[in-house]
Simulated scan of single mutants.
Amino acid sequence: MGGSLRAIPTGAVLTGVLVLSVSAVAAPAAYAVETGVVVQKVSVNGGKPIVLGTSQTESFTISVTASDDSGISSKLAFFGIEREVGEDYWSYHGTPTCTASSATTSTCKLTFKLDPGWGVPRNTLAGPWKVIIQLQSKDGDLYNNGGTLTHPVLRRGKLSVDAGPEPVAKGKSLKVTGKLTRANWDRRTYAGYTNQPVKLQFRKAGTSTYRTVKTVRTNSTGNLSTTVTASADGYWRWSFASTSTTSSVNATGDYVDVR
């Protein structure tokens, strides 16, 4: 479901349905200045950044645990996450499902499932998004956080690696190449991420920990290339730490036999 340019009426959007807008969304207003509703816990995507690619189906959940002496009602409940940069605006929003754990406390959840055809925003909107939470108690008190909470929504990063020659003689040079790309939401494709520091890491065969050997910057097309001295059998990978707009990513290790 999509294309809404106004507030979604209570009950019109079910959990698991994406609602997105390219125009401002007017969430129901919180009229009560004082409220007895106490928000105990907020979880957006399990505490991890929301990372969106280009064509695959994505999903994330907003979960809020709240209490009131009269209990929490599902009436006027509204969750959303949104960002506006210049003329670009995007919003995922809808009505959560609230489940009572006691007479006073409920946990309300809304899961967003993005359609792979049109469910990603503009590149300019990667970064911190406002999280909108509105709840109502059974005796009529309204709670609205006013969008004071933010959560990162990032473009997905991808990394490749290739180490060779394979096998290689001990003490000889080993060339390690790769490419760092990231989701281009505007064009629905992946493009090279330029001039970014990426760590080259090695995990010796029989061990479980990677160690950083050196840091290399991507070139003007996102490519990586360096040489190292082969010393032992093991796995080589590139590791990118993330930026304010792009997710962290580790390449799958490439095993090299050293003889």
Rank of each mutant, 00 (worst) to 15 (best):
G2A: 13
L5C: 08
L14G: 13
T15S: 15
G16W: 14
S21F: 05
A29Q: 09
V37N: 00
V38S: 11
V42H: 02
G53K: 03
Q56P: 00
T57F: 06
E58A: 15
S63V: 02
D68V: 00
G71N: 05
S74T: 10
F79E: 00
G80Q: 03
E82H: 09
D88Q: 14
D88P: 01
Y89D: 02
W90N: 02
H93F: 15
H93Y: 15
T97C: 02
L110A: 06
K113G: 03
G119M: 09
R122L: 07
N123D: 15
G127V: 05
K130F: 03
K138A: 04
D139N: 13
D141W: 00
N145Y: 04
G147L: 06
L149A: 06
P152D: 07
L159C: 10
D162I: 03
G164W: 12
E166W: 08
E166F: 10
A169S: 14
K175R: 14
T177N: 12
L180S: 05
T181S: 14
R182H: 13
N184T: 04
Y190I: 06
G192M: 07
G192I: 09
T194R: 15
T194N: 11
N195R: 11
K204Y: 06
S208Q: 12
S208D: 13
R217P: 01
T218I: 08
N219M: 05
L224Q: 05
S225V: 13
T227K: 15
V228N: 06
A230F: 03
S231A: 13
D233W: 11
W236S: 03
W238G: 07
W238N: 10
S239C: 04
T246N: 09
S248L: 10
N250L: 08
A251V: 04
G253N: 12
D257W: 10
D257V: 07
V258A: 08
